[in-house]
Amino acid sequence: MAKKGIVLMNLGSPDSTDVKDVKKYLNQFLMDERVIDKSYLARLLLVKGIIVPFRAPKSAEAYKTIWTKEGSPLVVLTKQLQSALQELVDTPIEIGMRYGNPTPKAAFDNLLKNSPDLEEVLAVPLYPHYAMSSYETAVEYTKEIHKENGYSFKLKFIKPFYNDVDYINALADRMRPYLDQEYDHILFSYHGVPGRHLMKTDKTGCHCLKVENCCEIASSAHAECYRHQCFETTRLVTEKLGVSKDKYSISFQSRLGKGWLEPFTDIRLEEMPKEGIKKLLILCPAFVSDCLETLEEIEERGRESFIEAGGEFYQMIPCINTIPSWVSTLKKWENEFVAGNDRMILKD
Rank of each mutant, 00 (worst) to 15 (best):
E148L: 09
R176A: 13
R174Y: 02
S134L: 11
L122V: 10
E120M: 01
T137V: 15
E140S: 09
L179R: 09
N114P: 10
D173L: 12
Y127I: 00
Q181K: 15
P128Q: 05
M175Y: 14
L118S: 02
S133L: 02
P116F: 04
E144N: 15
L155H: 06
V139C: 12
D117E: 08
E140G: 04
F153W: 04
Q181G: 08
S115V: 10
Y130P: 05
Y183P: 03
H185S: 10
V193H: 06
L155D: 00
E136Y: 12
P160E: 15
T137R: 09
Y190D: 05
Y190R: 07
G150A: 02
E144L: 13
P125I: 07
Y162N: 09
P116M: 06
D180W: 14
G192P: 08
V165Y: 14
I158G: 00
S133Q: 02
V193N: 03
D117Q: 05
K143P: 09
E136M: 14
A170E: 04
E140W: 13
I168D: 08
Y130R: 11
S115R: 06
F153C: 05
E144P: 12
V165P: 10
L112W: 03
Y162R: 08
T142W: 01
F161Y: 13
A123S: 11
L179F: 05
K147G: 09
D184C: 04
L122P: 02
H146G: 00
T137M: 14
N169Q: 12
F157R: 04
L122H: 11
P160Y: 15
N149I: 01
D117Y: 00
A170G: 08
Y141Q: 07
L126F: 06
L179V: 04
E140M: 11
V165E: 15
K159D: 12
D180P: 05
L112R: 07
M132P: 08
A172T: 03
L112C: 06
P125Y: 05
H185G: 09
D184V: 04
P160W: 14
Y151E: 00
Y190L: 10
D180T: 13
L155F: 07
A138N: 09
N163Q: 15
P125C: 09
T142L: 01
L187I: 12
A123I: 12
K147C: 10
Y151M: 00
D164G: 11
N163Y: 14
D166R: 15
P160Q: 12
N149T: 02
L179Y: 03
